[in-house]
Amino acid sequence: MKPEYEKYFRNNLPHIWCAGCGHGIVMSAWARAVNQLGLDKDQCVAISGIGCSSRITGYIDMHTMNTTHGRALTFATGVKMARPDLNVFVFSGDGDGTAIGGNHFIHACRRNIDMTVVLMNNNIYGMTGGQFSPMTPFGKKATTCPYGSIDRSFDMAELAKGAGATFVARSDIFHAKHLTDMIVAGFNHKGFSIIEAVSSCPISYGRRNGTPDPRDMMDNIKEMCVMKAAYDKLSDEEKANKIPIGILQQIDDAPEYTSEYEKLVERVQGGAK
């Protein structure tokens, strides 16, 4: 029997993701979240940019847009301002979201418009064959840093927090149930919600960095990702190779953009000059 959440998929699988890719786990974690929330497909929108992660919108049975590289958040802002009644999901990757889309990323965080963003971080540009992204760790190899990256990397969650995002969470493909919970919590947050989904790319990243086997990558993610409460108790030394997962920032009283606009319209139409 097909799992119930599959009703949110179109009947055009198989997908393009390589064997061992973590993105399929993110997609099913997201579909479980949507199913748990009981959302009407017709009242939902899914928007993505360009890259492996962004291909997800082709498989989702909603109003979907696979837009230009880095710009998903801009299209999503347009959709939400046109139809605030629709539920908006955005899918992006580490390159799409924090390199070419970096400007839109910080401004979407700042604006606090109600949407749920899932950023799949596999530390690499997979679609173009393995170039380093702003989230490739220092020293790791990619086709455009064959001797190891000398670029310092972004911590997406810290970036989002700094830009004023009102809901920032992280989870990963090993803790898939937890990832579903984070997406549900992000959706239920009124405002801009961003969830980093730590994913894996054995082909373009793992092969060049000593983990060509997807199982090894999964083990590494399992080791690296620690629940925030446990992470906070670690010594600085212990934290070195760990990252916290869970809700990393939540601000519930920040003004949400579409609501503020409604208030503005009321104020202006009420005769205020």
Binding site: T67, T74, T77, A82, Q269
Partner: peptide, 28 residues
């Protein structure tokens, strides 16, 4: 706002046209 319509100043022109297309796609 007086007409109940929606104005947003975006972060750049790339964002502006993206948002225009997103809004227009829905039917606006």
């Amino acid at each position: 706002p007086k007409c109940g319509a929606r104005f947003v100043q975006m972060e750049d022109e790339i964002a502006s046209i993206g948002a225009v297309i997103g809004a227009a796609a829905t039917g606006r």
